[in-house]
Amino acid sequence: MDHGHRGFTPLEERLDAWAHRRSQALAVDASRLRRGLLEFAVFTVKQAWACVFGAAMLVLLVLAGLLYPDGALLVRGDALVIAAVTVQAAMLVLRLEGGRELWVIMIFHVVGTAMEVFKTHVGSWSYETDGLLRIGGVPLYSGFMYAAVGSYMVRVMRLFDLRFVRYPPIWTTALVAAAIYANFFTHHYLPDARWVLLLLVAWLYAPCVMTFRNRRGGARFRMPILLAFVGVAFFLWIAENVGTWAGAWIYPHQAAGWQLVPLTKFVSWLLLMMISVVLVTFVHRPREPDAASARNEEGERDRLRR
């Protein structure tokens, strides 16, 4: 029995069922190109859906930066907090998001906001100073930006039925994630250990291979997990550039006018992702490919190659 689709929301269930039916229809006489295009289309749509919470937050930040009136009675930061809460509530009410995402989002709120309060205090970056819905110099919508990363991680775990070969022990990843989080604070007073921590991440995860499938019963594809980390961190760096361009927050070098966020922040996002990954593994334990999947994988991939 195929259990890979358990935990889907109703919309995700319909999307996966459509992809499965369409694949069955193409199985007999469609060309390899058409079958490959279907796999790519399903992958793209599911990735976009996994990003839906983060994309909604990014749209809100851009719209607030471009269109929100400066003299409004409700200041921009407070309006963004209300809008973010509204989006989150709507997704739960409409069953576009499950309870597991909500738990991860709450954890990320706490972890992200705590770091934000410290970082703004030491001047690493800054937000607008007005508004009531804030902690110190940090508007509460900032927590939703971290929560969006957690939401994405949980969604891809179930949408693509992720399995892992040679995943490192959870306790080792938790120790490294705790050291990474601590370094975000301590590097202001002690030597920065980010490059040592990056090497530890590479050492831990280098043997690990991630397998995924685009739809139930579909072929499993393989990818080194470090490659997946780098890809996600790159898109987070792109999103950060959009957010700073919209004025949601700024770095000191952007005070006189917007400039590209330096690539060193890409390394920070890569390390921050490790915290995200470990938190998500407490909700979705990494699983190895089961025996049935291993037997069916080669046959399905051979069919796609024909």
Rank of each mutant, 00 (worst) to 15 (best):
I170G: 09
A84S: 12
V165P: 11
L270Y: 07
A55K: 02
I82R: 08
R215S: 04
T86C: 08
R287M: 09
G36E: 03
T186P: 15
Y181F: 15
V138G: 01
L11H: 13
L26Y: 00
V104R: 08
A202F: 10
W103E: 00
A89D: 00
L11Q: 07
H121P: 03
R287L: 14
D78V: 01
F221R: 05
G217W: 01
G71V: 04
T244Q: 09
R306Q: 04
R34H: 07
A55M: 10
R220Q: 06
V59K: 02
L94P: 01
M115E: 11
H20G: 12
K119C: 05
L227V: 14
R306P: 04
S293E: 11
A292E: 13
E128M: 11
V278C: 12
L279K: 00
R194A: 14
G137V: 05
A114P: 02
V81P: 00
A25H: 10
R100Q: 09
Y152Q: 05
T211H: 09
F185K: 09
V85L: 15
Y181H: 14
F43D: 05
R14Y: 00
I275V: 09
L200A: 13
L74A: 03
F144E: 14
L263E: 08
N183A: 12
L271V: 06
W195D: 14
R306I: 02
M210H: 03
M274S: 07
C51Y: 11
R194I: 13
E116W: 02
H5D: 02
G98E: 06
H253K: 11
I225C: 12
A30P: 04
W103G: 05
R155D: 13
V81M: 01
I107N: 08
F282Q: 05
L159F: 12
M57W: 02
F184P: 06
E116R: 02
L133N: 06
A219Q: 03
I238G: 12
E39G: 09
S268Y: 09
G247Y: 04
F118S: 08
R95N: 08
A27F: 06
L80V: 12
F185A: 08
A89E: 00
R158W: 02
A90R: 01
F234S: 14
G218Y: 00
V154I: 12
V122F: 10
L38M: 01
V45L: 14
T129Q: 13
C51M: 12
W49I: 10
V59M: 04
V75S: 14
P139H: 03
M57H: 03
R287H: 12
W237M: 08
V111N: 04
D302E: 13
V154F: 01
K119V: 09
V154G: 04
Y141L: 02
T244I: 07
W125P: 08
T129S: 12
F212D: 00
M157C: 10
M210Y: 02
L197Y: 13
A246M: 14
D192N: 15
G7V: 05
E297Q: 13
Y167F: 15
R305H: 03
V280L: 04
V110H: 01
K46F: 02
A48E: 09
P10S: 04
L199T: 15
P252V: 05
P10Y: 01
R21M: 07
L26C: 05
